[in-house]
Simulated assay, not measured.
Amino acid sequence: MDAKEFQLNDVVEMKKPHPCGENRWKIIRLGMDIRIKCLGCDHSVLLPRREFTKKLKKVLEQVEE
């Protein structure tokens, strides 16, 4: 399985959409846990890194450094 590259402020697509209907999330915190914010309703979710990498479908927009 290939490792997906992601960093702070990237916009990602998860396997399942949020109940509001949006499937685009912004990474707002990185560490052992990853906090992502729904771009539809601004709800944020804190996930363990392992769970996040399982649920991540693809990185839509990468932030340039």
Score class of each variant (00 low, 15 high):
residue 1 M to K: 07
residue 1 M to W: 06
residue 2 D to V: 13
residue 3 A to S: 04
residue 4 K to M: 13
residue 4 K to P: 02
residue 4 K to Q: 11
residue 5 E to W: 06
residue 5 E to I: 09
residue 6 F to V: 09
residue 6 F to K: 01
residue 6 F to A: 06
residue 6 F to T: 08
residue 7 Q to T: 12
residue 7 Q to W: 10
residue 7 Q to S: 13
residue 8 L to W: 04
residue 8 L to G: 07
residue 8 L to Y: 10
residue 8 L to P: 03
residue 8 L to F: 10
residue 8 L to C: 02
residue 8 L to I: 15
residue 10 D to H: 02
residue 11 V to G: 06
residue 11 V to R: 04
residue 12 V to W: 06
residue 12 V to S: 07
residue 12 V to R: 06
residue 12 V to H: 03
residue 13 E to G: 11
residue 14 M to I: 10
residue 14 M to E: 07
residue 15 K to V: 08
residue 15 K to R: 14
residue 15 K to G: 07
residue 16 K to S: 00
residue 16 K to V: 01
residue 16 K to Y: 06
residue 16 K to A: 10
residue 17 P to R: 10
residue 18 H to F: 14
residue 19 P to H: 00
residue 19 P to F: 02
residue 19 P to C: 01
residue 20 C to N: 03
residue 20 C to M: 03
residue 20 C to F: 05
residue 21 G to Q: 10
residue 22 E to M: 02
residue 22 E to V: 02
residue 22 E to G: 02
residue 25 W to R: 00
residue 25 W to C: 08
residue 25 W to F: 15
residue 26 K to D: 08
residue 26 K to F: 05
residue 26 K to Q: 12
residue 27 I to S: 06
residue 28 I to P: 06
residue 29 R to D: 11
residue 29 R to K: 14
residue 29 R to L: 13
residue 29 R to E: 13
residue 30 L to M: 14
residue 31 G to L: 07
residue 31 G to I: 12
residue 31 G to H: 08
residue 33 D to H: 04
residue 33 D to P: 03
residue 33 D to F: 14
residue 34 I to L: 00
residue 34 I to F: 00
residue 34 I to G: 05
residue 35 R to Y: 09
residue 35 R to E: 12
residue 36 I to N: 07
residue 37 K to I: 00
residue 38 C to F: 03
residue 38 C to K: 04
residue 38 C to W: 03
residue 39 L to W: 03
residue 40 G to T: 11
residue 40 G to C: 14
residue 41 C to G: 01
residue 41 C to V: 00
residue 42 D to T: 12
residue 43 H to E: 04
residue 43 H to S: 04
residue 43 H to D: 01
residue 43 H to T: 09
residue 43 H to L: 06
residue 43 H to I: 15
residue 44 S to R: 09
residue 44 S to T: 12
residue 44 S to E: 15
residue 44 S to W: 06
residue 44 S to D: 10
residue 44 S to M: 05
residue 45 V to M: 04
residue 45 V to A: 10
residue 47 L to S: 08
residue 47 L to F: 04
residue 48 P to A: 15
residue 48 P to S: 13
residue 48 P to N: 08
residue 49 R to I: 13
residue 49 R to K: 15
residue 49 R to V: 14
residue 49 R to Y: 03
residue 50 R to E: 05
residue 50 R to K: 12
residue 51 E to S: 14
residue 51 E to F: 13
residue 51 E to G: 07
residue 52 F to V: 10
residue 52 F to R: 02
residue 53 T to I: 13
residue 53 T to Q: 12
residue 53 T to S: 04
residue 53 T to R: 01
residue 54 K to A: 04
residue 54 K to R: 14
residue 54 K to H: 10
residue 55 K to S: 05
residue 55 K to Q: 15
residue 56 L to K: 00
residue 56 L to G: 05
residue 56 L to T: 08
residue 56 L to P: 00
residue 57 K to T: 01
residue 57 K to W: 02
residue 57 K to E: 04
residue 58 K to C: 12
residue 58 K to S: 14
residue 58 K to W: 11
residue 59 V to K: 00
residue 60 L to P: 03
residue 60 L to E: 00
residue 61 E to I: 15
residue 61 E to P: 01
residue 61 E to D: 11
residue 61 E to Q: 08
residue 62 Q to I: 15
residue 62 Q to N: 12
residue 62 Q to S: 15
residue 62 Q to L: 12
residue 63 V to R: 11
residue 63 V to P: 02
residue 63 V to N: 09
residue 64 E to N: 01
residue 64 E to V: 08
residue 64 E to H: 05
residue 64 E to R: 13
residue 65 E to I: 15
